[in-house]
Design a protein around this nucleic acid. Structure first.
Lengths: 232, 232
DNA sequence: GAGATATACACTGGATCCAATCTACATAAG
DNA sequence: CTTATGTAGATTGGATCCAGTGTATATCTC
């Protein structure tokens, strides 16, 4: 818990405030489904768990609220956000639009170095997938997409996409538990990388399909879960 | 300062925590240029101004940071974000893409009621513009755009667009001080409303031009300011 | 016994206090 | 005179404490 991430310099020391570290950890736990939709997050309980006061917890909550992962009502506390299925699909549609846009920018600027990096991430992703390490798959899935977009140098767009991916990650990880539809996504990823290597503009539309299909697959999985098993 | 906003019910009482109210007020002050780019925000000073402790200020800062208006480094405090001009233009391009998308959804669902509401906002906007009330123009400009998008029922998209508009608002208000390019925007707004009334799909492309032009006009204004007057 | 009122407990909101870190200035060494 | 070191003041980070609100249970009235 509370590990630091993405060290730029080789000897980078802990440079993160407690609230940020807490937010990172809590975000991860929400995405992993440890805190389920609608579940209340009690300041005191979290504080006790991390052996700190409620103060940094409150600041972390503000961050998570801004990211759309929780909502907090005054004097009533925070609960994990619940999204209706239309809004989940809307998130995937937003991703499709924004990621296709940024990929168009990125495509002409990708170097072999970039592509090798992406391939490396993809290999890790495939490895994690075969080991059924859900959390790692979720994180690496985004990391792979992200690696393709970096060459675009579209800072604001990338930040926006990252925010949306945090939200969809939650459902992607859920889907990994429910279905085996991710097999298909795996093949997509290889194809995407291949098209990128040849700088083929058709990759943009392929990416759109990849994202939209993921959304539909997920919604199918969610609806069948709801109709069939109403497990607590 | 710290007034409540958007009362849905007629007798809505204060239902906002201090940090939220603070964030609203500080956001407004940043957008109005009272706190300039790169200017540090000192917790104690703000707390003294609002006659509260530093605690709610810190939580408000977290919100503003998530909105991209400030950045805070550990043990070094918060400063108002400075964006390079490419990123400002990128924000306008994002707006163009997202707002055109949502407008397409909204167009077929707009009722006369919706359109009348929009017209009402537009009249207030024109009024504020003629009175040179910069803050009001900024707020109402977004409110007009927003009113056109509400019928689309695209909650996530609208939230995203709102976030970007908060950022561009800052520069729009700056532009109002620097240039008279907003005249043109005023005419655009009337034209947009007219096209919406006839549910003419060409309004989407018109909107795109409206937003992109606004971005270019702004960058022109900013660059001439930088090259000519290097006023403190 | 059902509904309204009162009260106790749990939790959040905010203030004050202490510790840790940064910055700036002063001082000393080369 | 320049650079390095040390120290004091300012400012942020985090903990503890108190107050206010919400909820649930118990009590009272009809």
């Amino acid at each position: 818990m509370l590990e630091q991430k993405s060290p730029r310099s080789k000897y980078r020391l802990k440079r993160q405030s407690l609230p940020e570290a807490l937010a990172d950890s809590l975000r991860e736990r929400i995405l992993n489904g440890e805190f389920k939709e609608g579940e209340p997050l009690v300041q005191e309980a979290i504080a006790a768990e991390y052996e700190c006061s409620r103060m940094p917890v409150r600041e972390a909550f503000r961050q998570l609220e801004a990211a759309g992962l929780i909502v907090s009502k005054i004097h009533k506390g925070a609960v994990v956000t619940t999204l209706p299925s239309e809004q989940i699909m809307e998130l995937f549609e937003l991703r499709a639009m924004l990621e296709c846009d940024i990929l168009t920018y990125a495509l002409s600027r990708m170097t072999d170095h970039h592509l090798d990096m992406s391939e490396q991430v993809l290999e890790q992703l495939e490895d994690a997938y075969h080991k059924r390490d859900i959390a790692k798959v979720g994180a690496l899935n985004w990391e792979f997409h992200r690696s393709l977009y970096v060459p675009a140098h579209r800072i604001q767009t990338l930040a926006l996409i990252q925010g949306i991916n945090v939200q969809t990650d939650r459902y992607i990880r859920l889907q990994l538990l429910l279905t085996s539809a991710f097999e298909e996504a795996e093949q997509d990823h290889r194809q995407i990388l291949k098209l990128c290597r040849s700088h083929d503009p058709s990759v943009v539309e392929f990416m759109r399909g990849h994202i939209i299909r993921a959304g539909h697959n997920l919604l199918d999985a969610l609806s069948t879960r709801k109709t069939s098993g109403t497990a607590a």
